[in-house]
Design a protein around this nucleic acid. Sequence first.
DNA 1: AGGTCACTATACACACACTGAATACACTCA
DNA 2: TGAGTGTATTCAGTGTGTGTATAGTGACCT
Lengths: 180, 180
Amino acid sequence: MCIVTFMSVGHALLGILARGPAHGYDLKREHDARFPGAKPLAYGQVYATLARLERDGHAEIAETAQGGGPERTVYALTPEGRRTLDDWLEQVEPAGPYPADELVRKTITALHLGTDAVGFLARQRAQHMARMRELVQAQSVVLELGAQIALDHTIAHLDADLRWLETAASRVAPNGKVHT
Amino acid sequence: MCIVTFMSVGHALLGILARGPAHGYDLKREHDARFPGAKPLAYGQVYATLARLERDGHAEIAETAQGGGPERTVYALTPEGRRTLDDWLEQVEPAGPYPADELVRKTITALHLGTDAVGFLARQRAQHMARMRELVQAQSVVLELGAQIALDHTIAHLDADLRWLETAASRVAPNGKVHT
DNA sequence: AGGTCACTATACACACACTGAATACACTCA
DNA sequence: TGAGTGTATTCAGTGTGTGTATAGTGACCT
């Protein structure tokens, strides 16, 4: 049971269901509220994930309510789902290796190809600075503790990218091309 | 044409093929060499991606060599593939929003559930510190410029996680639970 | 009344991302 | 000869993620 190859979204939904039964639409909104700054969850994914959770016995349909609006399918956490959630929370995260991200893939590829990596890095830096300004703005409004912390994370990584763009540029500057 | 929903791995492979024809096995190894510190690419993914590249006309089978070992299918970049690659390199990356990562999902979920978030953060911090020591070690050996830069990126983000774990812990400390 | 606009809520189809296991050939060493 | 190692590919299965279609409700406007 519970071989769970990898299912971060599923676990997050279980975490929300632990607060009480809910339907897909609510889950999506609550999820996005919990993780501001992160990419919003698509509806399609919510329902697909819910279906998997139900299939695996982690959640069950509590009721299908009717009143005021379209039909809503309300899901509830099962005892097994609760156990899975607790197990997940107890596990320590591996601390990488992270999958190589798009920005690095592109930079390194440009470098190997001998195209204008320095220019690319500069353009990229401008883009990241703009985004940073937006986020710092967002951070200044008062948020719930959890949302604040989630936002901190996004900003911390954006900052890391920004610093990285600068060191990368300075490393490249001397010759501008990686020796193959 | 070339609607390319999202295909970072594919683009990276095109980048390697730009150096000259190669087969799947080689591509995997070259990819991993270019991105040390990142999660190695699985063979399954390489071949799946190659098949897609061929289907879409970005790459084509150059030959199926025989000598010394099992049969190898050598792929070569097509002119269209080259164009796609150049287009990709020219585009600026969006700078987020990043998908919410596992570490944050877990921390925030723990917080909302009222479980021991502080303990979790501490355990996580120890894990990250250990990993950091490994990477700094890896960084000290002399690497090719590109590999150096790729490794910088991993370290920068690990550092960001580490700092974040500390700020998160200090934010949580006062009360230890998010108000729902 | 009729129209359309926004919001709530779900479902379906499709493609990519990623893993793990299985297969198969060739070379080496005991 | 037979086990082991390295090369090279394939496949089944699942999770991730997007885009689109559908459909009811309420509100606003003319």
